[in-house]
Write a protein that binds this DNA or RNA. Structure first.
Lengths: 197, 197
DNA sequence: AATTATTGCTAACATTTGTTAGCATCATAT
DNA sequence: ATATGATGCTAACAAATGTTAGCAATAATT
């Protein structure tokens, strides 16, 4: 009889959630079936329900796991006693790092949250809006201090966040430059686009 | 008896494809059903098949319609007799313009092409790869001419294309700045991130 | 060793899905 | 006015989907 293999510090549910992230990333939430997931876990579809309540619960776990990490980082960065530009760079580096090392979860959270259902959906959207507002506020502070050029802060946020999402293409490319080189190139280009030269 | 309304220069199929773009953008290709589409067109689901062969054909039309427009523009820009930096700016402006005025099609082509099936899938992926290669080549030329700073060209392409995809958020935001302001802000930040200051 | 709680399997379910067949209705051209 | 092709409708289909029930096997606890 098949059994879901676990290593210490991770429950069987964790294994399922993690496999779900990979699958949802590859096929999209809607196109990924519970039977697909079961196969990737090495078990029959019905058996998954001993560990999870529903397919959507998997999406909740992924989306809010990611959202919470970003919110926590925002708290941290906001309380740093450094220039606005440095705060922005810290956030950018965090985003890049997350996108490199927790690719699947972050990607799924970013692209598939539409398939959440209320009240989770509104909740998630609110968190997202808040996060961007706080991000924009830092940029506006930097503009006021003349550290950055006078651009529309919400637009800058949108550019930054989506640009970093492009790391998806890096993951899928056959000839990857190193993670460090990728990071420095991105930071250089994105911060370079903000500063008051 | 219901009838698909057409205005001159657009067939009934065009109407369906256009409604499909809006629907696929909103719900995603997999989650959007033919019955949804039929309702949005104002007709019964089965009636759609008098005009189209399959659901996937709709995705083909959208994806290759967009891809062709971008390829055509690339041909045009490559043959311009201007600096590499100007070529890049032209491409950026074209992307922004497409994303503003043909939002739904471009967005769907960008996010849902995974659901194409071979041979269309490979075909589309190839076109995409080619486009990015040509884009990167222009950047590399600009670097050689010292117009831009020495960054990894494929990474720069990935940043540019994904950043512009962020216009999606602009469309959905309640308080939009004008399309012109959006364009100039984006160009300023993206070109600013490239130039050798 | 015996009992209990976890975990997995088979079978089945109700829905939803894309699509087709067959027929009715409309618009257009003769 | 009649014929013809285009367009629409109802009904139905097979396949795929998420999920549940009931039972068997395994692991954990006493």
């Amino acid at each position: 009889m098949a059994r879901i293999q676990i290593d210490k510090n991770s429950s069987r549910k964790d294994v399922i959630v993690s496999k779900a992230a990979a699958l949802f990333r590859e096929k999209g939430f809607k196109a990924a079936s519970m039977r697909d997931l079961a196969e990737s876990v090495g078990v029959e579809a019905a058996s998954l329900y001993n560990h999870i309540k529903s397919k959507t619960e998997l999406l909740h776990e992924l989306c809010f796991g990611v959202a919470n990490r970003f919110m926590h980082k925002m708290d941290e960065v906001e309380s740093e006693r450094v220039t606005a530009l440095e705060k922005i760079e810290h956030l950018i580096r965090f985003h890049i790092d997350e996108m490199i090392h927790h690719y699947e979860e972050v990607y799924v959270s970013d692209r598939e949250w539409k398939h959440l259902s209320d009240p989770y959906l509104s909740n998630f959207q609110n968190q997202r809006r808040m996060y961007r507002k706080r991000f924009a506020a830092i940029i506006e502070a930097g503009i006021k201090q003349k550290e950055m050029k006078a651009i529309d802060a919400p637009t800058a946020v949108l550019i930054l966040l989506h640009a970093i999402g492009g790391i998806e293409s890096w993951h899928r490319s056959t000839q990857k430059i190193s993670a460090e080189a990728l990071t420095e190139n991105m930071v250089s280009m994105l911060v370079g686009g903000l500063v008051n030269k």
